[in-house]
């Protein structure tokens, strides 16, 4: 009996050891797996604080936003590339400025479709605006240039605790000019976690972004440069190949300048918090 017990303990220990090694070595190949014909919706909630400075005087502003993004999966190719049509179902923006508080429902931005093709790792391959938005006035700053942005997933399988980096350089055409954004993000596969009823992998990220660009507005040259710190986490369901929830914080410092009939240099400090939730 004593010997049997000893053997049992040894076996349990071996099983535990094997299991722990197996858990430690369990790795996950992360891929987006949108299913053709399906429709998904994400709810984005954001809040931000911004300070603009002119002649040493600060102007504080804050904003809160809420929108629902619709994604229709048009096609999934044999190589795994996914084509989706994105649009915004609803949008509400509240802003508080020294000039007063305003809540707007920018209906001009609703149901404007953009077709995006991206790899199953999240790299955007093609983007085509179907319903264009006239980028004037308030629309110039609010019109989404990328309706849905995907995290770039690693090529190889990753075990829990693994850290990897992603460097992306995006160029966006904006108001007759180009704005270049460079992001250097470090990701960590934190572990498994149940989120909103889905079996997810929690992936945290932190990094820095840099922005630089020039544009032209009503005959004035507009320049922008700045940098920011980004951190947050997202929950990825590896079976569905979907991000279920994400929270992000961005702390940025930018300078906007104009030349032409009005010369200005405006330092801007901005803190934005955003959550994205998959709506069932």
């Amino acid at each position: 009996m004593k010997k049997q017990l000893s053997q049992l303990v040894s076996m349990v220990l071996i099983i535990l050891l094997i299991a722990s090694v197996a858990v430690a070595q369990e790795s996950f190949k992360l891929e987006y797996k949108f299913e053709k014909g399906k429709t998904f919706r994400y709810k984005d909630i954001s809040s931000g604080k911004m300070t603009q400075e002119m002649m040493g005087k600060e102007m504080k502003m804050s904003s809160e936003g809420e929108k629902v993004i619709k994604i229709i999966v048009d096609d999934v190719s044999k190589t795994g590339d996914i084509t989706i049509t994105t649009s915004t179902d609803s949008m509400k923006v509240f802003s508080s400025t020294p000039m007063g508080d305003t809540t707007i429902y920018p209906t001009e931005l609703l149901n404007k479709r953009t077709v995006v093709t991206f790899s199953n790792k999240g790299k955007i391959l093609l983007e085509q605006v179907i319903d264009s938005i006239k980028q004037t006035g308030r629309m110039a700053s609010m019109a989404p240039t990328e309706p849905v942005k995907f995290h770039i997933l690693p090529e190889d399988a990753k075990a829990i605790g693994t850290i990897w980096n992603s460097l992306t350089v995006d160029t966006v055409d904006r108001m007759g000019g180009k704005v270049l954004t460079t992001s250097d993000i470090e990701y960590t596969l934190v572990g498994k976690e149940k989120k909103l009823g889905y079996d997810c992998l929690k992936i945290s990220f932190k990094g820095k972004t840099e922005i630089e660009g020039k544009a032209s507005v009503q005959g004035m040259e507009l320049m922008i440069e700045g940098s920011g710190k980004i951190n947050g986490s997202f929950y990825f369901d590896p079976k569905l190949g979907l991000v279920v929830f994400e929270d992000t914080e961005v702390d940025s410092e930018m300078t906007m300048a104009t030349t032409g009939e009005q010369a200005m240099i405006i330092p801007i400090t901005q803190f934005v918090k955003n959550t994205r939730t998959l709506v069932k």
Partner: peptide, 18 residues
């Protein structure tokens, strides 16, 4: 940040000085 002087910047031109 102080003031974003064009001479310390790579994007902001001198004629943006207010």
């Amino acid at each position: 940040r102080g003031f974003p002087w064009p001479s310390l910047s790579k994007t902001i031109p001198e004629d943006a000085l207010p």
